[in-house]
Design a protein around this nucleic acid. Structure first.
Ligand SMILES: [Mn+2]
Ligand SMILES: [Mn+2]
Ligand SMILES: [Zn+2]
Ligand SMILES: [Zn+2]
Lengths: 127, 127
DNA sequence: ATTATTAACGCAACATTGTTGCATTATAAA
DNA sequence: TTTATAATGCAACAATGTTGCGTTAATAAT
């Protein structure tokens, strides 16, 4: 069994992510947290939160990784993040489009465990 | 007007990418090229090839970036790479599924310039 | 074939991002 | 309160990507 602990680092970082309307990178979280803990701790807390399915990871088109909180029901057995993420080229904000779930026909004999859909362009605010 | 030159670095790197059945990272290309040129040159050649729409960039789920050649008609006006990429968790090969193009309904007022669809799991060889 | 232009390169130095080991701290259970 | 160990801080390291600048070489002009 797991025995994950509620530390101040974890709660503060989670609060920052939850209060943000957009997905945040490790560095952005570090800036927003005003050195509440070490840089390494942020990495480890983020890993933990992802493993616990409290937040999810988004890979941007430039390879940078962002984190956003999970806004869906947590009682689902199979918990997937198959929605689209939009990365604005002007304001650089990454947003979860949670209701946009793409459909596609995969060839046989592929087992999908994880997905990442990212679009980039101009968001409504910058268009 | 552009005046891009055909250097040995560019042709060798392009050959490596074209001869590969799977997408390759910068480091993989460096290894395969047997130090034909500097590490920095590979970065610059890859940028150039992407800008010229000869290869395309794939962002993997772990944030690593891979490159694959463009296998479609080059006379299209608007040249997009909206196919799915599959990243195998066991053999770590990244493959272009060029005929799998997802469909989705975006909310209004989004202008899409670039897309990246990546799945990870087990490929037919590893299943 | 020779010369001129400048894209492309090599090298060094640097920045950013993420990882690992280990001693110390603090959370939660006993 | 005591105890077990998850979590942290720190330092050191590795990987990846970027920038500046003097030099080289591809291409066009002569
Ligand atoms: Mn979720
Ligand atoms: Mn293409
Ligand atoms: Zn925007
Ligand atoms: Zn495989």
């Amino acid at each position: 069994m797991k025995a994950t602990r509620n530390t101040t680092a974890k709660t503060t970082i989670l609060e920052i992510i939850k209060n943000s309307a957009v997905a945040l990178s490790h560095t952005e979280i570090q800036t927003l947290s005003h050195t509440i803990c070490d840089r390494v701790t942020i990495y480890r807390v983020l890993d933990r939160l992802v493993r616990e399915d409290i937040i999810h990871k988004i890979v941007n088109l430039d390879g940078t990784i962002k984190y956003a909180s999970c806004h869906h029901a947590h009682n689902e057995i199979k918990h997937t993040h198959n929605h689209i993420h939009f990365s604005c080229e002007k304001c650089h904000l990454v947003t979860c489009l949670e209701h946009v779930e793409p459909t596609f026909d995969l060839p046989p004999n592929y087992q999908v465990n994880e997905v990442n859909f990212t679009l980039s362009g101009l968001c409504p605010n910058c268009l």
